[in-house]
Amino acid sequence: MRCPLNGPRNISEFVYGGEVVGMPDPETVSDADWADHVFLEDNRRGVVREWWLHVATAYWFIAERDTATDEIVRTYPSSDVFTERVSFPVPGGKGGGT
């Protein structure tokens, strides 16, 4: 697989990280849709977008892979897709606690 940061590397240096999906608004989404987002995967046949990790550099990127042929179509940095920082409002101001 070609890592966008490090170039071609043995597949043993990579770990799969799940489908690339948008996150529903946690304030307004229904419980059913949130559960779907957190727990369920589409598992489609064809070219899908997936998160992959290059372990040696702890670098997460996106790969487009054909689930029928296992061919990796292309790979690119996540910054190509996610261009804005996502932040969550914390009730009561600074510090979210645990």
């Binding site: 490090n6 372990v55 040696a56 550099t57």
Partner: peptide, 11 residues
């Protein structure tokens, strides 16, 4: 630079 696996550890 190569950031890769050397003897199965990150280096």
């Amino acid at each position: 630079i190569a950031q890769t696996s050397v003897a199965r550890m990150n280096a």
